[in-house]
């Protein structure tokens, strides 16, 4: 029995008076690629942000490779994030959290900021370019001038640059044309993660089906193994059968 990469127990979190996640439990083992599916506003992004400590407050335990990175925290948004990230969690946030004034190359390099990865950034950059070949031509361009799909590639590529064991990818397909998003998710699912793990939050279930080991549904801040329920088909209310 190996230690799981991520073990979440009784996690609640939210922003100010709003509670988004309710007593959540989740375990992710090495080598797993997990899809997280749910409608807008049901806590997918909040779960990923809570793991790296970016929500308003949180309560409950998050064990990363057996070490506690969660715990009770009521304020100080993002204060612990850098130290959590440096332990080996890479987050590609929702939308474009890229650095608009830096070139694509610098944006990618900034992902390799933590730890010893800075020295091997060239090799890492080459491997990211293998995953996203369109970026090769854009390396010198300023990131602020890229198109939506390209920005998303930079954002995900930046997460891949780091020496992480857990990759969190938030809504890779959001706001992209279907063709581009299929390519992006397919590329994500083909990356060799070795003994690491990856969580992909996604609204679009068909994009993930068959590509990931496990799909979890998320509904109203709670995890459901039943994906259909999370996607909004309220089950027909059958008569009580006891």
């Amino acid at each position: 029995m190996t230690t799981p990469i991520l073990e979440i127990q009784g996690l609640s979190s939210g922003y100010g008076p709003v509670r988004v996640l309710h007593d959540l439990n989740l375990t992710i083992n090495p080598g797993e690629r997990v899809g997280l599916v749910g409608l807008n506003g049901h806590g997918k992004t909040t779960l990923l942000s809570t793991i790296v400590g970016l929500t308003g407050w949180q309560d409950g335990s998050i064990l990363f490779k057996g070490e506690e990175i969660g715990g009770r925290r009521t304020h100080g948004v993002g204060r612990k994030t850098p130290s959590i990230v440096r332990r080996g969690i890479a987050l590609a946030p929702q939308g474009d959290a890229i650095f608009p004034g830096l070139s694509v190359r610098e944006n990618l390099d900034s992902g390799a900021y933590s730890g010893v990865t800075w020295r091997s950034r060239k090799r890492r950059r080459d491997s990211v370019l293998e995953v996203f070949p369109p970026l090769t031509k854009l390396l010198g361009q300023t990131a602020g001038t890229l198109s939506g799909g390209e920005r998303r590639m930079v954002s995900v590529g930046r997460a891949l640059m780091s020496d992480a064991t857990l990759y969190l990818v938030d809504e890779p397909s959001l706001g992209l044309a279907p063709k581009i998003s299929i390519g992006l998710v397919a590329a994500l699912c083909e990356i060799d993660i070795g003994e690491g793990a990856m969580i992909i939050a996604e609204q679009n279930l068909p994009l993930l089906e068959g590509r990931v080991e496990r799909v979890l549904g998320m509904h109203a801040g709670e995890l459901k193994l039943d994906v259909g329920e999370a996607l909004g088909d309220i089950p027909p209310s059958a008569a009580v059968s006891l």
Binding site: P17, R19, W57, D59
Partner: peptide, 10 residues
């Protein structure tokens, strides 16, 4: 029913 963090806001 509420979290302690929430209670002061009600």
């Amino acid at each position: 029913e509420y979290l302690p963090q929430q209670a002061p806001d009600i």
